[in-house]
Design a protein around this nucleic acid. Sequence first.
DNA 1: TCTGGCGCGGCAAGCGATTGCCAAATATTG
DNA 2: CAATATTTGGCAATCGCTTGCCGCGCCAGA
Lengths: 341, 341
Amino acid sequence: MADPQIPPPTRPPTIRDVAERAGVATSTVSRALSNPDRVNPVTRRKIELVAAELNYVPSSQARGLSSGRTQVVALLVPDVTNPFFFDIIRGTQYELRAAGYTQLLVDTEESPEMEEDALHKMQRSADGYILAASRLTDAQLAEASAHHAIVTINRASANAPTVVIDTPSAIVQALEHLASLGHTNICFVGGPASSWSNAMRWKAFEDETRVRGLATSRVGPFAPKLTSGAAAADAAVHTGATACIVFNDLLAIGMLQRLRERGMRVPDDMSIIGCDDIFGADFCNPPLTTIASPIEQAARVAVSMLLSQLNPLQGGTKRRLAVMPTHLTVRGSTGPSPRQL
Amino acid sequence: MADPQIPPPTRPPTIRDVAERAGVATSTVSRALSNPDRVNPVTRRKIELVAAELNYVPSSQARGLSSGRTQVVALLVPDVTNPFFFDIIRGTQYELRAAGYTQLLVDTEESPEMEEDALHKMQRSADGYILAASRLTDAQLAEASAHHAIVTINRASANAPTVVIDTPSAIVQALEHLASLGHTNICFVGGPASSWSNAMRWKAFEDETRVRGLATSRVGPFAPKLTSGAAAADAAVHTGATACIVFNDLLAIGMLQRLRERGMRVPDDMSIIGCDDIFGADFCNPPLTTIASPIEQAARVAVSMLLSQLNPLQGGTKRRLAVMPTHLTVRGSTGPSPRQL
DNA sequence: TCTGGCGCGGCAAGCGATTGCCAAATATTG
DNA sequence: CAATATTTGGCAATCGCTTGCCGCGCCAGA
């Protein structure tokens, strides 16, 4: 027998097992594994070998407890079933993993309370937080970012680094598009009252329509769900508008369904423009004209901003704000105003 | 001053802070909080008060380290962006939260290696695992369930409790439906080779078509993604079939898009049936006839099976297998065979 | 030859909880 | 009222790892 027997793998090996087998102290093992330069290459090599042999996996619990770092980043989203957040989830997941972090996904169910509560409860279990479309008030957000490393997505804040998707500027494009099709009476279909994006989108809409002297109306707020589309569609039709800019694609697709039910043709009787270009926007019927957003990329940027906050050493660019460009993607849900005919 | 000053909240309060302020030992605080019956109601009340006052949140790290339980359940999915898994994510998230667990989401990128690796790396950081559509081999799965508490979804296993969505039995219905529409040449569009569901669906298809004496063909495997739809559609058309049963809706919707591009009408020239009834299946064009699955419910059942495994005391029914019923939902993507005309 | 500096490992003190064991206080019983 | 149970709360050992501090051995400069 060349090798001493490896003890039976009854319970997962600890750092001590590795230390004993390698004939060094646990501190050396610890350093060899997480601070390689601190130990002699020969020793390190040996330790790595033994660790591999024993199939050693450090306990993140213990590591976190003693070091204070958990290597976990929490992602808080208002609604995991909203496809908009799928791309966020995917983007952060990918980047975090690449950086050696684990993602903790939390659904705050569109509730500021749950969001705050989650933030509070997890204070010890996460190193940082990504707040997607946070529903927190400015005050809550300020308070939170005083205590935690936070990056927000689509929710500006003076206190936390932010990545915003610049949908408002494309709303100008969208209105240009509608105007060129002859629409003069346009309705804004609003999303959740507590949504910062919604406020921004509305503002851009309002400003631009005023400049252009278009007749406008606003309906809402509606929950950003497919099922809210029915009420939204009915309300929008009632305003007499010939075109709608809708808070997001989910709602817009819901409207599409309802309009069809009511026998209204899109875009012949009504044009619809959504926001975000989520999964489904391209294959719904008709395909949705929408404001395309680099959602996944935004998520990645958010991660990198957070990481540079967590590890200031590596001197990543310390941006406080990233603005992601957007553009109008014209598909089948917009067409000439029926008034023109 | 009635109350002694609360120390400034410089660092989060620990159990010791609470103990001191309440005038008891840390052990008592620990018990009061996690094993209420073990301490006198009066003492407990007092401790609860102090804890609330101090805004005490126990460190899950420390708790996990000393107790061995983490209150974390990991959910492993092959692809977080597949809408099928959205419902799984949502369902488990909801149930786990209700039971006081935290969900750790892991995307295994359709890779058995990543799946196994994740399972291994997290051995210490999760109490249990839910494997959705696991790509592991039987051997890997057996090995894994020997070491961990595992429940699988849509992946039968002799070793781990399983919840399966009984899509195969509805495939019989689907074929009945197609046959009644006059289709006699039907193509099965296959999903990932390592997918257990795919194998089951194929088997059901094969058995039933043989019984019915239908002409069949099979194409694939294809990745279960929208973008694979193009290749799948082309291949299916090439077989001369007039109807397809497709591994899942994602692929089916992708095929719909491609068929339209090629100028083929659905269902006039080709009927398509998907599986799962995911988000989007009802609003794509044409709306997809599909085998509806209670996905979210399946996820919930999986959680309850896992929890009863983790806390055997509470004597939940210890099912090893749950079969979720499915049914055919007929929408616009199926119609009479063109051959009949 | 002496000494300061450096590279490398070990010692041991935590990190913040849980929990087995024990003792004091209180309740129960004959 | 003595003797025995039962509560109730404290002590202290752990859980597995990190990290500040110390010291040994070796090399270079004086």
